[in-house]
């Protein structure tokens, strides 16, 4: 199974990091992975997105126009990428910030109140980890331990006091993904 995913949101929501952690975890499991950012002026304050491929075989195109999974952290991202999802694919959207319902009925849809859950955990900044957890609940493409290991690699040491918070956010999201 090749997972071709787009993570989109506005700057500061941690969509680039979400993608990197997933790619890193895939690498730790010897899967073939790639992470491709959108770059340029849009990175400076506007919307940001990255494309992540996790595959058992080699990664062909790191550019994906028809993803089978989209994470939309805000409304402009939903508007932009909902249409691109392959039929049968998965859309995960941040229902804390997006009030409209997705319109597609040929895909699977998961609403994650990411900011609300993150706030309950005590820090709005981990909404991205809630969503990543939910993604893994729905599509267990890598083990949670690998995600934890990836977090340790990617977060700089002075941020390691946030590891347990991130892990709790991942677990909450995963539970939500499992049960929906």
């Amino acid at each position: 199974m090749t997972h071709e995913m787009i993570f989109a949101g506005f700057g500061g929501q941690g969509v680039m990091l979400m993608g990197q952690i997933l790619a890193y975890a895939g690498m730790l499991e010897d899967k073939h992975v790639s992470w491709l950012p959108s770059y340029g002026p849009e990175m400076r304050g506007g919307t940001a997105n990255c494309t992540v491929v996790v595959a058992e075989q080699h990664v062909g195109s790191p550019v994906v126009t028809r993803p089978n999974l989209v994470v939309a952290m805000n409304l402009p991202s939903l508007d932009k990428f909902e249409v691109s999802i392959k039929p049968g694919g998965l859309l995960i959207y941040n229902s804390s910030l997006i009030s409209r319902q997705p319109g597609r009925n040929d895909i699977e849809v998961l609403a994650v109140p990411a900011n609300e859950i993150a706030n309950e955990l005590g820090n709005d900044r981990v909404s991205n980890m809630v969503v990543l957890g939910a993604l893994l609940g729905k599509r267990p493409m890598v083990k949670m331990e690998s995600i934890h290991a990836a977090l340790r690699h990617i977060l700089p040491p002075h941020r390691h006091h946030l590891l347990s918070l991130n892990e709790r956010a991942l677990a909450s999201g995963q539970a939500l993904g499992n049960s929906n």
């Binding site: 690498m27 992975v33 790639s34 992470w35 491709l36 950012p37 790191p62």
Partner: peptide, 10 residues
């Protein structure tokens, strides 16, 4: 190209 420069891979 810009893609190879910006992307991450193992």
């Amino acid at each position: 190209d810009g893609m190879l420069g910006q992307m991450m891979e193992p």
